[in-house]
Design a protein around this nucleic acid. Structure first.
Lengths: 256, 256
DNA sequence: AAGTGGTCTAGACCACGCT
DNA sequence: GCGTGGTCTAGACCACTTA
């Protein structure tokens, strides 16, 4: 059975740096199916002796694939091919809740609370919610998971007037608000792509540096008051957001 | 003048790996303003002797900041603090052209063509445009720049029926289409975050692995025909997309 | 030609996870 | 305890840029 995955011949007179060649070989082994998601790679020292490279060089090649999200390394345990996540599609221009959204797909929802309580507001929250210096803020921070996989980090901040007791939110924030007749009628979102920092990457169980989608949302009541200020981070590999476009000025009538 | 930037004392009995300490020191020097955008870092060998670390370790710390986009390295020349890019805000739900969008902001627009011609379609293009196996496709691929900075890569594909002569597109694609009375009335976009590969990162002049926003768009005529299929990659650090939300089913009336 | 980053090595020790 | 990945070193050579 145990054919070595690679051999020194693979590196004879090939072009380019050795770590890139190794990277390519491993990458091809994955895409060809010779290495399946969840499979373990040989230990670095063994890869080194199999290929005739030094361990430093082997690590450099492997690390590149870890950075690309194709491999995961667990200290003391080994190196494994990343389990792939199915991509979820979600409409951006509907104000739906995570809970309902997943239910509609027939997927389980779990949340892990990072923070749920009343705090002194950050400057960012003061700005966004229009608070006074002495006001306090309700914070709801959680990791959203579906079928066991963390998909997003959600950090919601609300004025106490909107949510005096954060602890009463157990499932959907919108559900809790709606029960008190606080229904947002309008919301503005800002999206950008960002490399996940070590902390957020850890919470989402991906390698630091992986791409994530950052969404900031401000929701308003009919009165114009701000209901909530939410900053979310979605795993870039797990989400597709869909937007339907209206027609811009140059595509339609000139004098609208 | 030339105080050494760092000294071995910075590393005495501090916690954590040495390369992370170096990374933090450099990062702080940047955020504190002691290192300005465009400034050069001391050569790796000098950093090593200043800090008492090995060059390998210095490189590891520096590379991490290169990966984070804070530093740029140019072989044979040196290591420099990244020039920062001002963030542009753009409405996602309007179908505006890059050209007009920048003009409205009073910014210059330059494009560099990567491809402009007629090709045999890829399977992806066949799917998206609903082509037959023997049809051909017009492709417009360019890097979009403003004020000298590359901001996005745009790869547009159109059926020949919509654009028989790609060479006649010189500025805005929409302008060219509108002149032939081909005005899209509807478009669907899909967004996701992704780590830029070496090629795309090179075109956008950022480090490979930096986060980018991928947008796929399908535009339709009033007849329902597909006008264009465009895949764009925006620099994550240069763009903020804004979306206004409608109200989802649970927020509004039940029976609308 | 000199100086820079880019690659590579052989060998060492540490910290963690498993069994 | 043993095997894994994580960190670190000293020294070498290559490839490119700049002068």
């Amino acid at each position: 059975m145990s054919h070595a995955l690679f051999s020194p011949e693979d590196f004879e007179a090939s072009p380019g740096p050795l770590y890139l060649q190794l990277q390519r070989l491993i990458s091809e082994a994955i895409s060809s199916g010779r290495l399946q998601p969840g499979d373990s790679l040989p230990p670095e020292r063994e890869l080194a002796s199999q290929t005739g490279l030094s361990r430093v060089t082997v690590r450099k090649g492997v690390q590149a694939l870890v950075g690309a999200g194709q491999l995961v390394q667990r200290r003391g345990s080994g190196t494994f091919v990343t389990e792939k996540v199915e991509r979820l599609e979600q409409a951006l221009s509907l104000l739906t809740s995570f809970t309902e959204d997943m239910a509609r797909r027939g997927r389980s929802v779990e949340s892990r609370w990072l923070a749920r309580g009343i705090y002194a507001p950050s400057p960012e929250e003061i700005m966004a919610l229009g608070l006074g210096a002495n006001d306090q803020v309700s914070r709801l921070e959680r990791v959203r998971c579906s079928d066991g996989t963390p998909l997003a980090i959600e950090r919601a901040s609300l004025p106490l007037a909107m949510l005096a007791d954060p602890a009463q939110v157990t499932r959907s924030l919108y559900e809790t608000l709606a029960a008190r007749d606080l229904r947002p009628v309008r919301a503005v979102q800002r999206l950008s792509a960002t490399n996940l920092g070590p902390v957020d990457a850890g919470l989402l169980q991906v390698a630091p540096g992986q791409a994530g989608l950052r969404i900031e949302r401000l929701s308003y009541l009919a009165t114009g008051q701000v209901v909530e200020f939410t900053r979310s981070l979605y795993r870039g590999d797990a989400y597709d957001f869909a937007v339907e476009l209206k027609i811009g000025p140059e595509g339609g009538r000139r004098a609208e």
